[in-house]
Amino acid sequence: MSDMDEMDDGSGVVKKFMFLNRKAPHGTVYALEGLEVVLITAAFDQDVSMVFTDDGVYQLIKGIDSKGIEVKDFSKTYRALEGYDVEKLYVDQASMDARGLTEDDLIVDVAVLSVDEMANLMAEQDVVISF
């Protein structure tokens, strides 16, 4: 993808961008198109964090098989994020608990945060984009 080449807005400014993923991976297009924005933001050498909360935690679960619904499976992209220097992945503890999930159910290494920790992390950001 040509968009993935190094990009620069010319300012040299690095801001803290948080991408808040709230939706299940399939059913709506938000997760897939949201991931595109994350990759472009990383290509601009910005400080990127991804948060998975509510049904967004399902984006990271193991064993996704979307063949039956004839929709592209993009879950491998989460594993490739490290290659784009997107290494700050956070999940919301309460969202995991409510869905009976633990870190072992996820395809990537994440930090599990309490509500208070999440609030602090959000307060540190310059830009929060929610999908």
Partner: peptide, 21 residues
């Protein structure tokens, strides 16, 4: 244009405000 135009808004402007679900 490309998504870079969105990222630029985040970098260059004081606030980025999202309207959606």
């Amino acid at each position: 244009s490309g998504l870079g135009q969105l990222v630029e808004m985040g970098i260059q402007y004081d606030r980025l405000v999202t309207f959606g679900d």
